Amino acid sequence: MSRARTSNEIWWAVMLDKWHEFLHNCPKLPKKPIAESSWPFQIGTNITIKEYNTFLNNYGSSEYKFQFELNSDNKTGSVHIIDMTTPVHEDVVHLLQNFFEVPNGGVIFRPPIKVSGQPLHYKPYGNGVEIAPDVAVYPGTALIPRPATSTIRPRPPSDIDGNPYARIMCEVAVGQGVGHLKQRCLTWMCEQYVRAVVSIKISSPRIEIREPATGYFYRTMTAKLYRQGMAIRKWDFGNARKNSRDPISDPAPCNAPNLPNFQINIPIGEIQQVALEAKM
């Protein structure tokens, strides 16, 4: 167990952080909560790729989701907060992780499919910029070796820790705008090793009205499935029909579990297939 820091050590840690920010051009986290209407919220300009990656490694696990937009010089850029990891967001992320782990059949150590939350990868064509999905699904080392030991030349891409590049990415947005969400998904699809991207957009709750039986707020949700070489598939679900002004008199079609029209067949089998091809 690690030793608790004294108040004097905490004071010095805070001062060192402030001194580091003074010496370097670092993005600045907001000191007060940000309303969703303010997103994307800019927290840094003319930040170098190295400065952003350092910032992301230090604060990437905070309650915010960040986006780095390169300037025309391809060396510096601006940093924005695009969303927050609210309880609703984290509940959906946790649910997706559980679904992707089902094919492991309960195997915990060295499972054939590895599921991680927000692992850092190098952004496709991003000049070394790091980016993290909400959920990443990898082939386990039982299926495919780490790129560092691969016999393929040139070696396959990896995440920043040297693990095989994730084959399926998931992006979950609550406050994040639809445009930024789409851009993020299409960015992942630029990497050929990414076989699919699952996108879920959860709209703001309609706080003026609730479900009579459950008391839940009405929400519209949209899921999209991106796959290499295939058309994008889309599902509008939730307990409110999209653009409906009266969800009670005009109920949503997704109103019961296991409806075929609202099921996403996640292509988990492609992970094993791509892994086998990589071994050949």
Score class of each variant (00 low, 15 high):
residue 21 E to R: 05
residue 74 N to T: 00
residue 14 V to N: 14
residue 57 N to A: 13
residue 41 F to Y: 15
residue 95 L to V: 14
residue 86 T to D: 03
residue 70 L to K: 04
residue 48 T to G: 04
residue 63 E to L: 11
residue 24 H to S: 09
residue 30 P to S: 14
residue 88 V to T: 13
residue 78 S to K: 15
residue 17 D to M: 10
residue 81 I to S: 02
residue 38 S to H: 09
residue 26 C to I: 07
residue 92 V to E: 08
residue 48 T to N: 02
residue 59 Y to K: 08
residue 61 S to C: 07
residue 44 G to E: 07
residue 43 I to W: 00
residue 62 S to C: 07
residue 33 P to K: 05
residue 56 L to G: 03
residue 86 T to V: 02
residue 51 E to N: 12
residue 49 I to M: 05
residue 98 N to Y: 02
residue 85 T to P: 02
residue 97 Q to I: 11
residue 47 I to V: 12
residue 74 N to E: 07
residue 44 G to W: 03
residue 83 D to C: 08
residue 96 L to V: 15
residue 23 L to Q: 10
residue 80 H to L: 10
residue 15 M to K: 12
residue 50 K to H: 04
residue 87 P to C: 09
residue 92 V to D: 02
residue 78 S to I: 05
residue 84 M to V: 11
residue 80 H to F: 15
residue 49 I to C: 04
residue 72 S to T: 10
residue 62 S to P: 01
residue 16 L to K: 14
residue 44 G to L: 05
residue 31 K to E: 15
residue 57 N to D: 13
residue 25 N to R: 10
residue 12 W to H: 13
residue 64 Y to N: 11
residue 47 I to F: 03
residue 85 T to S: 07
residue 52 Y to R: 02
residue 63 E to R: 12
residue 43 I to H: 01
residue 79 V to G: 00
residue 99 F to R: 14
residue 68 F to A: 03
residue 58 N to Y: 06
residue 15 M to S: 13
residue 90 E to M: 07
residue 25 N to E: 06
residue 97 Q to C: 13
residue 70 L to S: 07
residue 42 Q to V: 00
residue 39 W to I: 12
residue 13 A to T: 15
residue 73 D to Q: 01
residue 69 E to R: 12
residue 94 H to N: 14
residue 71 N to Q: 08
residue 68 F to Y: 15
residue 49 I to N: 04
residue 71 N to A: 06
residue 94 H to K: 10
residue 20 H to T: 13
residue 62 S to F: 04
residue 58 N to G: 11
residue 93 V to S: 06
residue 36 E to A: 12
residue 84 M to C: 12
residue 91 D to E: 11
residue 41 F to N: 00
residue 81 I to E: 01
residue 72 S to I: 08
residue 32 K to H: 10
residue 51 E to V: 01
residue 20 H to E: 15
residue 71 N to R: 03
